[in-house]
Computed example of a mutant assay.
Amino acid sequence: MGWKAAEKLIRHWKVVRGDNVMIIRGKDKGETGTIKRVIRSQNRVIVEGKNLVKKHIKQGQGHEGGIFTVEAPIHASNVQVLDPVTGKPCKIGHKYLEDGTKVRVSRGIGSSGSIIPRPEILMIRTTPRPTVLGPKDTPMDLVLEKTYDAKTGRGMPEL
C-alpha cells in the first residue's frame, strides 16, 4: 500500500466484526450478511457468503490444488449497518447514556434512533490472554519501587 492510501485510512470505525450489514454498492447490492472480518489496514471488510470470487490455487505440499470460491473483501464505504428496529440500512452515531456508557445509535432519514448493540462475537478473544507470568515480565516489587523524588527533582540514591 502506498503512502497516499495510508493517509486515507479510516480513523474511527463505525462497523465492527459481527454486525449485520447491507451491501449498498457492487455486484451483491441489496444483499445482507454478517461481517466476518475487518481489515483496517486496507479499509475493507469481508461479509460472510457475499462478494464470492473464483480463486485458482496451485497444488503444494500438504494441500490440494484447484479452483475454489472464496469471499473477497469489500470497501467499508460500500456496506451499511442494518437498523435493529426497521431492518433498513442506516448511518451510525454515538451517544452517552445517563450512566456514562457510550453506545451506538442509528441515525439518518427513516431510522428509528434505537441503540445498536455490540455483537456478542466481540466478547470472544481470538487469542487468549496469558494466565501465568512469563520470564520477561517485571516483578511487582520492581514496579512499585520509588526511583524519583519530586521535592529535590533528582533520582533516589541507590541503597
Rank of each mutant, 00 (worst) to 15 (best):
G110M: 03
D99L: 04
D99C: 11
G66I: 09
I109G: 10
I124Y: 01
H56S: 11
G66R: 08
G93T: 06
L122N: 14
G87L: 04
P128K: 13
I109S: 14
K58L: 08
R125Q: 12
T69E: 15
I121C: 14
L82H: 03
Q80E: 08
T138V: 15
K54A: 08
K54D: 15
G49R: 12
G100R: 06
R118L: 09
P135A: 09
V85K: 14
P130C: 04
I67L: 06
T86P: 03
V105Y: 09
V53L: 03
T126N: 07
G87P: 10
N78Y: 12
I92G: 00
N78K: 05
I115R: 04
Q61M: 05
P89M: 02
V45A: 01
I116H: 04
Q59E: 15
G134R: 10
H56P: 00
G65L: 08
L133N: 13
K91T: 02
Q80F: 06
E98N: 11
D137M: 01
I74K: 03
G87R: 07
L82C: 07
G110D: 15
G113P: 09
H75Y: 11
S106R: 14
I74N: 03
T127H: 07
G87N: 06
E64W: 01
L122C: 15
M123I: 07
D141V: 05
T86D: 01
I67E: 11
